[in-house]
Design a protein around this nucleic acid. Sequence first.
RNA 1: GUGGGAAUAGCUCAACUGGCAGAGCACCGGACUGUGGCUCCGGCGGUUGCGGGUUCGAUUCCCGUUUCCCACCCCA
Length: 428
Amino acid sequence: MIKAVRGTRDLLPPDTALWNFVEATARDVFRAYNFQEIRTPIFEVTELFARGVGEETDIVAKEMYTWEDRGRAESDRGQSLTLRPEATAGIVRAYIEHKLGDRGLNKLYCIGPMFRRERPQKGRYRQFYQIDAEIIGPPSAGSESPARDAEVLEMLATLLDRLGITNWNLQLNSVGTPTDRVQFNEALRAALQPVVGQMCADCQRRAVTNPLRVFDCKVPEDQSVIETLPRITQFLGEDSRKHFEAVQAILAKVGVPFSLNDRLVRGLDYYTRTAFEFTHGALGAQNAILGGGRYDGLSDALGGPAAPGIGFAIGEDRLVMSLQEKTPAESVLRKPDVYVAPMAGMNGDAARLARELRRHELVVELGDDAFRLKKSFEAATKVGAKYILIVGENEVKADAFALKNLATGEQVSIVRANLAAWLRSNRG
RNA sequence: GUGGGAAUAGCUCAACUGGCAGAGCACCGGACUGUGGCUCCGGCGGUUGCGGGUUCGAUUCCCGUUUCCCACCCCA
């Protein structure tokens, strides 16, 4: 049997109803903040991610689905292409390519699949889905303003609340400018050198490869050492510090709770200043349901104009997973309003009635005149229809149809002209 | 990529130390040819993930492999 490949999965009904609920809610919330949708290709030239995400990141170094294009045109052949591992690089590429900065500030969102070749785990798949949004534009449009950081964070809080996820936790940090980070990295390495010997094996390795990650260590014995290490916040330049304070002040004013986490570091090279993460319990080790931050230098790094930006990516797989506990898919599934059950030879009349009802925006399940009435009732019950409409010779002759409430057993006869209106007012 | 656990009917799971592969739910049919749910009766359903080995005999023990789960790395 051919099966879905490792790390990919089918999203089946009724779960897809929950996914649609999440996406519809996101679109609705984004609209209130005047975000508009952008759809970029699912693959790009490899160089985009190498430059945009960072050569040294794990994503680029070992997790990308990359292949060599083949084609007739010289320009196609041998070109290295990659399935997008994240959305921001592609969006910024589109921003540069179409000179979107000329329109002023861009508020864009993008919903779709991403690909990373990682070992699958709970809440982690090789094809996974992200809901991504970005505010990007020329500095003159205010793209650098802390007001935009706070707006994005407040929007996320609103979205999570709307989805019924109440026990989220916003972790906030500033990772400064690249210049700030160079100094911080030096200080961190210097501080680690005398003490790293007492730390766990993982930390000893991190101290060499990626000192920032030492802050992620969960080994209890290492915590006292980690407490003594310098923090990025101590190395923020005047501008970064003021920017960070301004973000916090606005959040306090609008009433979005957050906790400062000066150990929060982000994996992607392009992040500057504000970095954040929303976490949620009961997701195992994958407790971050969304993360994001500011990337003021990304456009420049890709050869574009100065275009500061801030954005986030929601891990939709994880979001849906954390939603499932409280909101079963069935609860957002629209069940049929009515099951139209044709008696023998009545398929045509039934189809005509169903057509009429569907035109009135009723959800109609249409049966088959080969079914005995008993079987139609069973089928109607199984699909969860609220009413069953019996289409038999008697009904057609009288132009009035038997309509039975499957839950209460109550049965009425309604003339054809009133059927749609009656059902619409009684569908509940 | 590394470490550990698991895999038996569509789903959830049994099967003693190696001895005839089972149950509940679901599905189909009947009791009931224009009225479902409840009940009763019957039926369908399996290369025990896959490949090899040990054995008279393997769901069971061993090796390999694939996938999933848990964790690491990293991240959404």
